[in-house]
Nucleic acid binder design. Structure first.
Lengths: 343, 343
DNA sequence: TTACCACATGGTATCGTTACCATAACATGT
DNA sequence: ACATGTTATGGTAACGATACCATGTGGTAA
């Protein structure tokens, strides 16, 4: 039922002034232990709850953080960004409003307006996949931090995955297992940071092990499983075929498994495989489970929130652009390639 | 920058009273077109935004809806429930606060308390998978609706998937393609509604086609890919092997693909497969794409929100328990089994 | 003794908006 | 002419919590 008690009610009940009640509620000093107890009892007995609207009205702070995204709330990929933000926010007594905007600017602007109307203290903008974003101008009216995306002019703080280290770790893992011919089905289009970074990491690892980069076993992973299947098959039929595959994402690795098995080859005995993204449902239901690289969604969310708390004061200094590590998650899809080690 | 304009400021600027401004803002009658224009101009020029805290303080309504869940925000499975709620809420000018609670009662109670402190108008409680839930007592202090879960005593409105029709559709699809031996790896434990319902649906469809229920090709799909792989293999080695599989979820179907292919069998030419859940990343990256049954997450979210809007007045009448349809999503993993049709 | 400070306490103005009341102009019906 | 109703308008008291100010106690240093 509607319980509309105010601090006046408990003040009366406890036989004190409203100010004293407020002091107890906010842990302010100058309240005798005796009265504090009385107030707490009264609160308990009447089962009173503070009205946060009134509270925030007085202080001009709303305690609201906006979480804006192109479509992250809709998709499973980056759900952990939300979790990261949420947990950090909860600890800081902030409330997160999650909204998604379409991709077009006008819709975004309207949603930002919605947040501004509610006087959010800050906005976190997250993208579903690591990419450059363009934001509506009105977002600058409130502190904003980006997660899993960035602006061309770097005018806002931003956290993105360190794709290079991810690509490096995946490749190095295969090299250390003795593989020297490692096919790479990179994500695409090639201009996006994931594709660029992972390729650099791949090359770095190869160079470290004195393996020449061979363009003929580099392909692209697109959003069409059939096409990826064909690409994988083609590489397996290469005159000098790879002994290992590095797939740009776990979904493609999954399709790759099919192609490899269809050729009568075993994983990892004949072919080793590494993926990227650590999509848990895919990774743990492949046989054998897929070794992959984790995208730091949770960490980006946490970083973004904490950045927002700081952001308040500092202003025109260069906004930080954070690269967050991508750890390797090892499972059973990589095996030693002893013949090569022997050479 | 901090822009602390109030309706007083625009009242002054427009040369009218604050009441008139408020009337314009809320589309109330009794404002001349002339003054309405002046006010709108002033709002535009000063780029004023309403303070929702003050607004809600006055009206006692906070416009807040709490979305509570055991772990849905953490997992990709039921993300669409959120989307359903969110979109309905946005249209109704409500703000959704998403929070997750652990499984234990004390944590839940604390999180509900957090929501109550903020005077939410209602709570939607969602579960990650369809199951019975127990809720902390304090949740009854505010209208609450359940999505993808239910209470033993049915004391709150609830929307759950119609598992029976789902199981029926999946099985019927295989029967219509001519299959008569259909292995079923049901979800488990057997006491959960998903397992019970789908089994009933499976039996119903068999009965309709005069096929006897054969316990020897019924198994369980557990959260261990290896074990499911073994189960699938075992069924394939059955003296009278199935020509089709109905897997209790897409993850298990995915593992099933591996087991079937490892036997040198083709999908769908030799073996037809149907899944359950419509987990998009799995469904569309299997080769061939998996025919499956959709869980109505989005619809449950929408239903729950709309129910909350109604719930306000009605009280002790029996709270509705809604069964929501599970449509079949057809892809390429099912093929005609003409031999059987010929018999 | 006086002056000053730390602690304790409550009254009240205030935050920005809207509900309510009061006022006024003008039209309509009797 | 007068009562009654519709439209327009603005002043002001709430809403509930907190910041600020005022007051009062007791203790300690000068």
């Amino acid at each position: 039922m509607s319980n509309n008690l105010t601090i006046k009610d408990i003040a009366k009940r406890a036989g004190v002034g409203t100010t004293t009640v407020s002091r107890v509620l906010n842990d302010h000093p100058y309240v005798s232990e005796e009265k504090r107890q009385k107030v707490l009892e009264a609160i308990d007995e009447l089962d009173y709850r503070r009205n946060f609207s009134a509270r925030w009205l007085r202080g001009t702070e709303t305690g609201l953080i906006g979480f804006l995204t192109d479509e992250v709330a809709t998709t499973p990929y980056a759900v952990d960004i939300i979790r990261g933000v949420q947990e950090a926010a909860f600890e800081n007594e902030k409330v997160v409003m999650i909204l998604n905007t379409g991709r077009d600017m006008e819709a975004s602007e309207a949603v930002v307006e919605f947040l501004l109307e509610r006087h959010v203290e800050g906005i976190i903008y997250a993208a579903m996949f690591h990419r450059e974003v363009k934001l509506p101008q009105n977002i600058y009216q409130v502190p904003t931090v980006l997660a899993n995306c960035f602006l061309a002019d770097r005018s806002l703080p931003s956290a993105v995955p360190d794709e290079v280290i991810g690509g490096y770790r995946a490749t190095k893992n295969l090299l250390e297992a003795g593989h020297r011919r490692i096919a790479f089905l990179n994500v695409c289009p090639p201009a996006i940071p994931a594709a660029e970074g992972r390729l650099i990491g791949y090359k770095q690892a190869l160079a470290e092990f004195d393996v020449l980069f061979d363009k003929s076993i580099i392909g692209v992973a697109i959003e069409d499983a059939k096409a990826n299947y064909v690409t994988t098959t083609r590489f397996l039929e290469h005159p000098n075929p790879p002994t290992a595959f590095f797939f740009g994402n776990d979904r493609t690795a999954m399709t790759g498994y099919s192609a490899i098995m269809a050729k009568g080859l075993r994983i990892p005995e004949d072919i080793s495989v590494v993926g990227f993204d650590n999509q848990i449902d895919i990774v743990s239901n492949l046989i054998p489970r897929l070794t992959t690289v984790q995208l730091p969604h949770y960490e980006m969310g946490q970083w973004a929130f904490n950045q927002l708390l700081l952001h308040d004061d500092e202003d025109d200094i260069m906004p930080p652009q954070e690269l967050i590590d991508c750890p390797l998650i090892e499972h059973e899809s990589v095996a030693e390639k002893t013949e090569y080690l022997a050479t």
